[in-house]
Design a binder for these strands. Structure first.
Lengths: 347, 347
DNA sequence: CTGAAAGCGCTTACAG
DNA sequence: CTGAAAGCGCTTACAG
């Protein structure tokens, strides 16, 4: 088990520089020589030393993926799709995904992860809606940042989806299904967050419903809060459709309401402005604005790679467009959650 | 913005070695000197170079977290809880979580992630049930591996939960609630996988039901397959309780059945052998064998740290015990999914 | 108590 | 076409 270039070099009677060139395909030498060196290295079980490479080449080949740690135990699952997408692009390109959970609190140097303190990253993809202060802090740590679904919508280095359009799509679908009023369910507004998808979705919904002449009412709920759920149930009416602003509100509604006697797609109409990749497997009949977080992660990763290869300071932003998905699945006998008004079973 | 020890050293008229010692709290020197150096370093914005540190100290401070990439787009979400738990321990200890998605296929050297090829890790936590071949391959890459919920149950370096016990707990609860028969729903058996939680859970269920004199029938389904779901619905009867072997089967049942007129906790009884951290937020009334993947990740991470600090080759394995959670939530008017037999509303 | 020396394993730029 | 030199920024062990 040879572990260094030098050992291979000594073994073959050449310099370690030649071995280095041979293995990486750089430099000039007889193809035969190169081939023989590669063979030997393989036979001797040579494995390069990442730290030495980093040191000499000034490239870490590490990409930080910054995600939010919302109380650690709960929340943040939505990030997994995106992170998987990022890794699927980055890893084959020879980069490593370094996961960094970040609390807004630790703006101070000392609270930061080692990976930040010790210049261990070539760049980072931020997938967390941080406060301006924290955002600024990251900007000082690296000049190569891609903001992926991070609440930043600038002309360069950002990826986001058109949330307003998602809202419009849902509003149109609800109107077309024959409902006269929409109950829009979303979470408490965290006013200090610089950007909430909810706001934009609501703007889109409002716009869409207005054009279609459908009334709209917003309800803020905490998930799992019985009183809040009851508030919605109290408003149930055949003319009313329930619209969930994001995935974290559509799940509790679908899971908890049935126990109270209200099944989506049967007793009431339900549509969602948000999407998660597992819906495609476990909840195919959910009527929703479709959207692929995995793909968005890949998009951000590609932008990162492009930026690093071209040494450009910036790369054009990308906006992902959602599409309406009715939830009609041929091989499924179960109806979509947004069933046409006239097919609803009253209670 | 000074970026090296030497710049600070020159600035203060000492050697870079002294600065190194001062900053890390090693060596011996006047407290005053140490303090002055630290101040200067901070003022000059010094940030250590991770690669140089790694090189000199032979420690990367990187921990690989190996997860399975099941077709990439779908599956694997369950890993997120565990990964978060790992990171929550590792990061404050100065280590970085390097995510590595691994396909069983790429046993060949060339298909492996760079992080594997280039000795960039101090150790790894494997959270994927790999084939023996792939497992063996990892073993050659690192001598410091913790197997977390990875299908390996040896006396050292492993973390797993007692799945048999989970099955027993569920069986007892179902029997006590007054049901005479259980319909156990699980996925297709992937026979080539070295270990499936499902097998052990089933063994526990079988044991528990046998003792309690409750009949048990297994149904294998693909999630989202309507015919399969119908198979279950056809068997519905007031004496029958539905038991989901893992989280990926309980969700489709709870999400899809209501649309077909069957609500858990109202029209039929439902219990689950599995748990996910988000159940605690979004699905609190699910009756289940409770279990904390986040905590298990922390456990694995602590074992890793212990192993690295003590330079021991191995650390004692840890078995996590599940607990029965009925799903009775005081402030929730919604019933648990495993409602007592006599409270069930017939259809 | 302090610092000069050696070395970690590579890559890059340059001289032959 | 090939290789010797310089250097990346630290830590460790050791001599003073």
């Amino acid at each position: 088990m040879a572990s260094t270039l030098k050992e291979i070099a000594d073994h073959m009677g050449v310099s370690h520089v030649t071995v280095s060139h041979a293995l990486r395909g750089t430099g000039r030498m007889a193809e035969d020589t190169r081939h023989r060196i590669q063979q030997t290295a393989r036979r001797m079980g040579y494995r390069p030393n990442a730290a030495a490479r980093t040191m000499a080449s000034r490239q870490t080949h590490n990409i930080g993926v910054v995600i939010h740690s919302l109380g650690l135990q709960c929340g943040g699952w939505h990030a997994y799709d995106t992170v998987s997408g990022i890794n699927s692009i980055i890893e084959p390109a020879g980069y490593t995904t370094c996961l960094v959970q970040m609390h807004d609190v630790e703006s101070g140097e000392d609270g930061m992860a080692r990976v930040f303190r010790e210049q261990a990253l070539d760049g980072m993809i931020v997938h967390a809606a941080l406060l301006p202060r924290a955002r600024h802090h990251l900007g000082e740590l690296s000049d190569s940042i891609i903001w992926c679904d991070a609440g930043l919508q600038e002309s360069t280095n950002c990826v986001w989806r058109d949330e307003v359009q998602a809202g419009r799509l849902v509003a149109n679908a609800v109107a077309e299904a024959g409902y006269r009023k929409a109950l829009v369910v979303s979470g408490e507004s965290h006013s200090e967050r610089p950007y909430r998808h909810g706001h934009q979705r609501e703007a889109g919904l409002r716009d869409g419903f207005e054009r279609a002449g459908v009334a709209m009412q917003c309800v803020r709920i905490e998930s799992g809060n019985a009183a809040h759920l009851q508030m919605i149930i109290d408003q149930m009416h055949p003319d009313v459709a329930v619209v969930a602003a994001d995935y974290s509100h559509v799940e509790p509604i679908a899971l908890m309401f049935p126990s109270a006697g209200w099944s989506p797609g049967v007793h009431f109409a339900l549509a969602c402005c948000d999407d998660r990749s597992w819906f495609a497997v476990h909840w195919r009949n959910l009527s929703r604005a479709r959207f692929n977080r995995y793909k968005m992660g890949q998009q951000a990763a590609n932008m990162m790679l492009q930026r690093m290869s071209s040494h450009e300071r910036s790369v054009e932003s990308h906006i992902e467009l959602p599409a309406w998905y009715p939830g009609h699945v041929k091989e499924l006998s179960i109806p979509p959650t947004l069933v046409p008004r006239e097919k609803l079973i009253g209670r």
